[in-house]
């Protein structure tokens, strides 16, 4: 474990950061990925997440091993590619992070504040949620994205997410669609996926969460979309909110059939 960490550390220091400001940032990332070959620092998060999943905590000393992520209590494999989904026990659609919080409250008897504490980690203050997310998503690697919109609430979440995708507002009149509804667009040199184009949507959705080299953390979909909101000049979304879940539902449906390949590695 420590050995792996130091190998990663050594590899990372070998990469001059200005490499990322080259002619095509995407090429540089591709080189970086190749250099790491089949390794990704996210693996450390996955391992920690597995430990946390099995660790007995809370007032009654319970693990998350009986958490139902949609495929039955304790089933982790393949759960993520079917999320967000409708959960009968709460009568609503939840994404992975909402469901994790739900399990931490109902199974482990944590308070809502404890259950959603530190959703996004920083140096010296790691996030248990990001680690759990890394572990759970990794267990869907190689499987096809297959969210359902057959339940009326799933359909409603999809429609709400779609509506939000096109919702223009704020000081700059931006919507998600402003940057993500045409092929081959760029902000500066950063290529922007067209989330209405199936291939782009699949490539994007199948590679989150990701270890972000620029942040040194594994970032979840909730984190990614919160940062989109900031750049869109929107106010701040509450963590694990239904609006963001609806947006994830819209993106996941557009990415249907894509082969899931995360936690990935990104700039």
């Amino acid at each position: 474990m420590r050995l792996i960490a130091s190998i990663f550390a050594a590899l990372i220091t070998m990469i001059p950061l200005q490499g990322f400001a080259g002619n095509s940032s995407t090429d540089e990332i591709a080189k970086y990925r190749q250099l790491l070959a089949d390794g990704n620092p996210a693996e450390l998060w996955e391992m920690r997440g597995e430990e946390l999943w099995k660790k007995k905590i809370g007032p009654q000393s319970v693990s998350l091993e009986q958490c139902d992520l949609g495929k039955g209590p304790g089933v982790v494999k393949g759960a993520y590619v079917e999320l967000p989904r409708y959960f009968k026990d709460v009568n609503k659609v939840m994404d992975l992070e909402q469901r994790l919080i739900h399990c931490r409250i109902t199974l482990q008897k944590l308070t809502p504040e404890q259950a959603a504490a530190v959703p996004f980690g920083s140096t010296g203050n790691p996030s248990d949620i990001e680690a759990l997310v890394a572990y759970i998503t990794a267990a869907s690697r190689g499987m096809k994205i297959a969210v359902s919109t057959t339940h009326p609430k799933e359909q409603a979440a999809y429609e709400l997410g779609k509506r939000f995708f096109f919702y223009r507002a704020g000081a700059h009149d931006f919507a998600c669609a402003t940057c993500h509804s045409k092929d081959k667009q760029r902000i500066r040199l950063q290529e922007l996926p067209n989330l209405l184009n199936r291939t782009d949507a699949q490539n994007t959705y199948s590679t989150w969460p990701a270890y972000r080299v620029s942040q040194g953390e594994v970032r979840s979909m909730q984190h990614r979309l919160s940062d989109c909101m900031r750049q869109q000049r929107f106010p701040e979304p509450r963590y694990a909110s239904d609006t963001i879940t609806a947006l994830i539902m819209f993106m996941a449906k557009n990415a249907e059939g894509g082969v899931y390949d995360a936690p990935a590695l990104k700039r």
């Binding site: 929107f234 106010p235 701040e236 509450r238 239904d242 963001i244």
Partner: peptide
């Protein structure tokens, strides 16, 4: 939803 989920 936005009213509930976001804050300035």
């Amino acid at each position: 939803r936005l009213e509930e989920d976001f804050s300035s």
